[in-house]
Amino acid sequence: MTGVAGVVLQVLLVAVGSPLLVGVMRQVRARLEGRAGAGLWQPWRDLRKLMRKQAITPAGTGWVFRAAPMVLAGTALVVAAVVPLVTTESPLDGVADLFAVTALLALGSVALALAGLDTGTAFGGMGASREVTVLALVEPTILVSVFALSIPAGSTNLGELVAAAEANWLSLLSPVTLLAAVALAIVSIAESGRIPVDNPATHLELTMIHEAMILEYAGPDLALIEWASAMRLTLLLGLLAGLFAPWGIATAGAGALGLLVAAIVVVVKVTVLGVALAAGEVFMAKLRLFRIPELLAGSFLMALLAVAASYFLV
């Protein structure tokens, strides 16, 4: 029963908390840059404002354009239910396979890219083409690096991976884990469209990746996309925290108290990661577009080396 409760808890945490995480990150950046900032709740206020607006779809767009926000948000919610954030003991445990999770995240990205293409505008196409370039390197890296982690554990099930890491924390110091951690951190930044890959705060339409794809969205659709993007960022950070700092995640048999502690721990971990990311961004600049494949190829290489190391360094 705690499994179901845990799942509900972590979906709620992600759904409600992710805009807050974005708010925290913006606030950190603002303070570090010497600005007052808009406050933690601003992303939620923005979402509320957008929800009240009229839904507008550009002329000539089809069902792909209308379905994409739903797909994006839907996949994010499913992943939120499956990934071991609060508990490793999910009733959806069979789905919590790393391949399934990666595929779900990719599905959301692809839906958005298709929607960008569906608008038929130059910017939608440009954003989609750039997003797919990034995606083509990000997804294999995620797969390969989690695969590397799965070799010592002997399973690709995320829950088991986390449980195994929690049981033997010394293995976290191995080159396999470190290489995979670096690779996953880089692609998480790329996947969530942060500096140095993409600038979430830009108004320069020619440099955008994520923002260019969603340039034609307005009102509730835009709200859904913004919310889903925040959830994806939260999930990626949560996954990172779970894989490389698994302490505190409730395993089978943890009671209600265990779940509560696990929830607090995960909130702390994700917040710390988010703050670190935001603080890092302040001192970072955006890479030239042609340098991004280099960065991603580098992360892919690390993932591959992690796999190689997991074979020979045992």
Binding site: L170, L173, S174, P175, L178, L179, M302, L305, A309, L313
Partner: peptide, 13 residues
């Protein structure tokens, strides 16, 4: 073993 591999990992990286 852990330390050796850690050093080797750094060497490789």
């Amino acid at each position: 073993t852990e330390l050796l591999y850690l050093a080797c990992g750094a060497f490789l990286l």
